[in-house]
């Protein structure tokens, strides 16, 4: 579904991505793990055209999206829940969700809205509240829910559990699995490598801009190197 080849990104003189490759197959949960500064967020931003590539190609569902503007990439069926949530603080919960569905027709919008509310009932309770006054966990749910509003085929989640209480983390991970069961493909970035690898079909380990290891989630969980570096053993 998504295929990334030989992706290079520079920030000025810093070579942040040194030729990474990724493949995300339809219906899967794929995770990208790595230490702080490994280049995970950079990879996501490059995929959706927020960063200029220095080299590489990105193919989504058979069409080359490498140099398309961001809004056109999104319209092909990709949604992003960005690192740090980035809900629209000055808009209400409902308006945030509306913007998530910017390119949907009204009938589809209603359907999507009901689905998102069933995943996150808390959002329904707080639909008229200004997003800036939501708690951190609620904002995370909103960022996730907003991404789902566009009926995406592929959802890119950048650290959806960052800064959340353990119980809320569980809720978010359950939602990720549920969304995947309903047919959306997921590319998940996580600091919480244990949780991510547990639900992922496949995983990539990123280190200073390079993929150093990849394999099925269960296999990476057992890997000596991974256990040392990311699971604190």
């Amino acid at each position: 579904m998504l295929r990334v080849d030989d992706l290079h990104v520079y920030y000025g003189g810093i070579h942040a991505l040194k030729g990474i490759h990724l493949e995300v197959n339809e219906g899967r949960i794929v995770t990208l793990i790595g230490a702080n500064g490994a280049g995970k967020t950079t990879a996501i931003r490059a995929i959706v055209g927020l960063l200029k590539l220095n080299a590489g190609s990105i193919v989504f569902r058979g069409s080359n999206i490498t140099d398309l503007p961001t809004h056109q990439i999104i319209r092909q069926g990709i949604a992003v829940s960005p690192e740090g949530r980035h809900v629209f603080q000055n808009l209400s919960v409902f308006e945030n969700l509306e913007l998530g569905a910017y390119n949907l027709r009204t009938a589809e919008f209603q359907e999507q809205l009901e689905w998102v509310f069933s995943l996150f009932p808390r959002l329904q309770e707080r639909r008229v509240q200004v997003a800036g006054t939501l708690s951190g966990g609620e904002q995370q749910m909103l960022a996730f829910g907003r991404a789902l509003m566009s009926r995406p085929k592929l959802v890119l989640l950048d650290e959806p559990s960052l800064g959340l209480a353990p119980l809320v983390v569980q809720e978010v991970f359950r939602a990720i699995e549920e969304v995947n069961r309903q047919g959306a493909t997921i590319l998940l970035i996580e600091q919480n490598a244990m949780a991510a690898l547990t639900i992922a079909h496949y995983g990539y380990v990123l280190e200073t801009g390079k993929v150093v290891l990849e394999g099925p989630g269960a296999k990476l969980l057992k890997d000596e190197q991974v256990r040392k570096a990311y699971l604190g053993e």
Binding site: V48, L50, H71, I74, A79, V80, P82, F88, N103
Partner: peptide, 10 residues
Amino acid sequence: ETTRLMGINL
């Protein structure tokens, strides 16, 4: 940036 991520032509 987030506006763009909504599929909106900024």
